[in-house]
Amino acid sequence: MKTNLYLNNETLVAGITLRDASELECNNMALHAAANSNNVLKNLEKLARSVQCSLDDFVCANQTHSANFHRVTLADKGRGATQLDTAIKDTDALYTYEPNILLCSFTADCVPVTFYNEKAGLIGVIHSGWQGTVKEITLKLFTHLIQTENCQPQNFTIHIGTALSQQKFEVDEDVYVKFKALGYAEDFMYFNEETSKYHIDNRRTVKKQCELAGIPSDCITIDPTCTFLNEDGFSYRQNKKAGRHLSFIMRKG
């Protein structure tokens, strides 16, 4: 099973699963994108073993390209792990203070964000497709964590994962106008006169949203890998039946 681990130490494990032709459904991790749900469950169980937890420790959301976030408690353990109808409804970001909970986010071109704040004992994941970025889910969540949860912005470590590159994220004017209306994304877009398409760097826009919330730039890393161009990537834009990556983070108890 191909997995890119961002960290795995005494207190934290975090990473993203990758497309792997040698695995069932090419290592698809999402029940909602499964050809056969039993195959996906086997992949999820394999991941659970690799990070030394069980599927009952997973928490998944029913992602809807919203700007909604949810504070995960012990009562949420196992939600969405084996059944879609138990997932946290209409939510695209999760955070928790609880140990031994694996927070999950599914992507196939959209921007996955994993983060932690060791001093606060906080971890989280964000799913930010272009709609979530336009709705400013990342900015809203980190503003909440800083202002309401009283986290210190300089204590966050944020990783923006593999996603559709600016080269491959080409859109029409309607999407460009939405990004332009943000007022801070102009540097992350260009117009291709040959195709009459706009190209947007969603990852750098998400990074900017972290910075606007007050998080120092040097606390943020970006994986430049393109899900469309890389053989390890699942790309919905390339294949509407693509599987999904699973971005995850857990604080060890």
Rank of each mutant, 00 (worst) to 15 (best):
residue 86 T to G: 05
residue 97 Y to Q: 08
residue 133 T to L: 13
residue 50 S to V: 09
residue 143 T to L: 12
residue 25 E to K: 05
residue 181 A to W: 13
residue 37 S to D: 05
residue 89 K to H: 14
residue 44 L to M: 12
residue 26 C to M: 14
residue 155 N to Y: 07
residue 217 S to W: 08
residue 10 E to A: 14
residue 120 A to C: 11
residue 184 Y to I: 01
residue 98 E to K: 04
residue 227 T to S: 07
residue 87 A to R: 04
residue 198 Y to D: 05
residue 66 S to H: 04
residue 110 C to M: 04
residue 62 N to P: 09
residue 167 Q to D: 03
residue 170 E to F: 05
residue 94 L to P: 02
residue 37 S to G: 01
residue 219 C to I: 02
residue 248 F to W: 00
residue 88 I to S: 07
residue 116 Y to L: 08
residue 193 E to C: 05
residue 152 Q to C: 12
residue 251 R to H: 05
residue 55 L to A: 06
residue 193 E to V: 14
residue 43 N to D: 03
residue 33 A to G: 07
residue 230 N to H: 05
residue 15 G to N: 01
residue 127 H to D: 03
residue 128 S to C: 15
residue 194 E to R: 09
residue 115 F to A: 09
residue 250 M to C: 08
residue 164 L to G: 04
residue 98 E to A: 08
residue 218 D to L: 11
residue 239 N to R: 07
residue 33 A to T: 07
residue 96 T to A: 10
residue 101 I to K: 02
residue 125 V to T: 09
residue 24 L to A: 11
residue 164 L to T: 06
residue 82 T to Q: 13
residue 190 Y to E: 10
residue 53 C to K: 10
residue 67 A to K: 05
residue 120 A to T: 10
residue 115 F to Y: 15
residue 187 D to W: 02
residue 198 Y to S: 02
residue 233 G to R: 00
residue 195 T to S: 05
residue 143 T to D: 15
residue 142 F to T: 06
